[in-house]
Design a protein around this nucleic acid. Sequence first.
DNA 1: TGACGTAGGCACCTTCAGGTAACTACTTCC
DNA 2: GGAAGTAGTTACCTGAAGGTGCCTACGTCA
Lengths: 149, 149
Amino acid sequence: MATTTAAQRREQARSEYDAFLRSCPTNQLLDRLSDKWVSLVVSALAPGAQRYSDLARRIAGVSPKMLTQTLRTLERDGILTRTVTPSVPVRVDYELTPLGSNLALLLTAVKDWAETHFDEVQAARRRYDGDEGNGTGGAGGADPDRTDV
Amino acid sequence: MATTTAAQRREQARSEYDAFLRSCPTNQLLDRLSDKWVSLVVSALAPGAQRYSDLARRIAGVSPKMLTQTLRTLERDGILTRTVTPSVPVRVDYELTPLGSNLALLLTAVKDWAETHFDEVQAARRRYDGDEGNGTGGAGGADPDRTDV
DNA sequence: TGACGTAGGCACCTTCAGGTAACTACTTCC
DNA sequence: GGAAGTAGTTACCTGAAGGTGCCTACGTCA
């Protein structure tokens, strides 16, 4: 028999899919935006240039490793510039490029959307969680441990 | 001694930061958008309603587990609706709600931005990788293993 | 008659992103 | 004079996300 199993077809589809993803600019950029720290760094830099330690303080929960890593990636992509001033304690400034400012605008649009529609999402969640509780009736109380994301 | 170490301050800052993030609608919605499968599912549903197996075929690389999980999350958030038709092989249709279509528009905007600025990003990457190669001069050829994301 | 398809659920298992800690060199403050 | 700050780097480790395989139940087709 040919044995063109569903799993095999999925496996083959995935390889094509992977090749597609690697060549797809949209996906590559979307990947960049999906990074949690990227959005935070870009937002932090939107008002103007910041020093490394300023960023570390503003973003608060970030570890030095992730901050450096994120900054390097963004610098490589031309989102921000890194300026080293060889003073006595070495001083490094980061600033958004025009491209980075453009990206910041996009993030602002996302933020606006989130703020506009957040109450709708919350209402939908309450509705969904409520239906689960009285519809099936099996759990005996609808476990409320899924309160946050 | 007081020992208000930098690490301790960072630790404290993180707890405040966490509390901040949990109450921030923007961040919660941004988290949703960061999910790789979410954007793919929303894009796949943008043209119209799809069945479970149609989605599995369109998105290709997705595992049944992740597809179900993503669909449940989006249903809970009111991004899409799930309609079960109790025919002989159970048939389930997924369709974007108006809110979901709105989100699809946002994703389209991101896609447009990516397509518009992708060449700039690529140019910046080539410039950055080139500088690394001839500036330090240590690697002796600028290792090209960082070609993709 | 048994394998496929539809729409998942459940459990295990791997992987890797991200956190932690230790280290650098140089200076200034207490 | 020792600790802290500035701007990181490196090695190690863990926890959670996500993949894989196996299962259901019911009908149909080869």
